[in-house]
Nucleic acid binder design. Structure first.
Lengths: 253, 253
DNA sequence: TTATTTATTCGTCAACTGACGACAAACGAA
DNA sequence: TTCGTTTGTCGTCAGTTGACGAATAAATAA
């Protein structure tokens, strides 16, 4: 119901059946091999995970962790994460000193890594009409950034006020917003007001509407009827159709 | 950094200095009164909270809990909540059998209770131009529903996929969206497409943009430059200006 | 005053949870 | 084979955390 109860599947057992490939169940282990052994497994790797090189395992953990924390929140338990990776909980601490370090790494890779520099180039490619540029940009943005994983991680981090990283995102988005405004204004031959905050707020009219569509889809699980492309097209057209009016309203105050 | 570490102020002590009024420090207690007593307080209410009637205390707890869970997430600890209420943790369980029950109650009061029935009436008051109606509605909506408390609680619940209550909210919002579309179309004498999902998506153009503004403001802590009223006015005008165009685009597909 | 109800607390249990020391087994070079 | 290096696990500690039995004292009735 609330977070702490997250998945709660097979918590009791350690790792079993999580590994698809190379599951060498019980490597040679002739039962009476060495000293003390009753029934419980001894340290080492009895039915342990497949051996992996350092960097590979680290990458795998990061992948699984991204998915895991996106679904279960940043408060997801390291034991469950380890289980999903098919390794012991202890092993996580060979790669990340603390859970917080793991979270930071996940955040940086997944959240900050999702923004593409090409967008700025494409948005300013004046050989294309603005409608086409905006359409292309927001389709890509919706598909590669505003994903379920990205949105959930970002919201969890924002709600927790977890300052995972300095405000790179805010800065990037601001750039995008200003670029959009500048380009549309140029195509329309419209004079823009000075105040940058006001400018951005106008661009948010489009950017926010599309972001909120993603939130509806991935967080509230609604608005699933129309295709993403249809929605993007609609929002872009509405924005462009009302552009002059919007600028006029905002300037004349 | 991440949720479990929430506030972390004076966890060790129980309740001390939280109660402003009537702090009857150490009521008569002649030290050697009855049996077992070394130094620690005995049960009862040594420097306990002010005595309150059942319903009053219950209401107070709900108030504090709303604020508390909105800030700290649904995983906030009952001990901290109790501390904020100025009572012992045990006392919470006199009013709510489990933490989950408390959460449900908070959710119902705060989330579902924030929607006003008058909105439907006002939105359909054809003696007023649509621009005025929308402006008034969204100003109120932003101020009384899309508050920090409401948004944070709603997002925490949505992310946790906590089915606190059946989808009343979705139903209410759908009604609002359809009402808006119907009214604007009537004023403009525009023919609307059949598909209700498509209709709603069009209304989301405005509703989503404003909701996202609230999220920026209360969750991401940005977009604080302009006043709420300015923003509402802008969004409403943009929506109305592009209305015919939007309907045309959406119908012709 | 005395008895009864009711608001409130203490103390504690069991399950959870991040972290880590110590040890075992696989790999590979000598 | 032998031995060092690296990958991996077990077991456990200390601090949380929801829940609750039992005791206490303030308010109210008798």
């Amino acid at each position: 119901m609330y977070e702490p109860e997250v998945v709660a599947s097979g918590v009791g057992m350690n790792n079993k059946g999580c590994q698809e490939e190379n599951v060498q169940t019980k490597p040679k282990m002739t039962e009476g091999s060495s000293k003390t052994n009753g029934a419980g497994n001894k340290p080492g790797s009895p039915q342990g995970a497949v051996r992996m090189p350092f960097n590979e395992r680290r990458a795998q953990i990061l992948d699984v962790a991204t998915e895991f924390f996106a679904e279960n929140g940043l408060a997801g338990q390291t034991r469950q994460l380890a289980e999903k990776c098919g390794i012991s909980q202890r092993l996580l601490y060979r790669f990340f000193p603390t859970k917080e370090d793991l979270l930071k790494e996940v955040y940086n890779r997944e959240i900050l890594g999702a923004f593409k520099a090409v967008w700025f180039v494409e948005l300013q490619d004046r050989s294309q009409p603005m409608a086409v540029r905006l359409d292309a940009f927001y389709r890509d943005y919706l598909q590669s950034t505003l994903t379920r994983k990205w949105l959930r991680l970002f919201l969890y981090a924002s709600l927790a006020e977890a300052n995972m990283a300095p405000d790179y995102i805010a800065a990037i988005v601001m750039q995008l917003l200003e670029t959009v405004m500048r380009e549309v204004a140029h195509e329309r031959g419209v004079e823009l007001p000075e105040d940058p905050a006001l400018l951005r707020e106008m661009a948010w009219t489009l950017h926010g509407a599309i972001s909120h569509y993603a939130i509806r889809r991935h967080i509230y699980q609604s608005s699933l009827s129309l295709s993403e492309d249809q929605v993007v097209t609609m929002h872009v057209r509405v924005f462009l159709a009302g552009f002059e009016d919007m600028v006029e309203v905002c300037s004349g105050r």
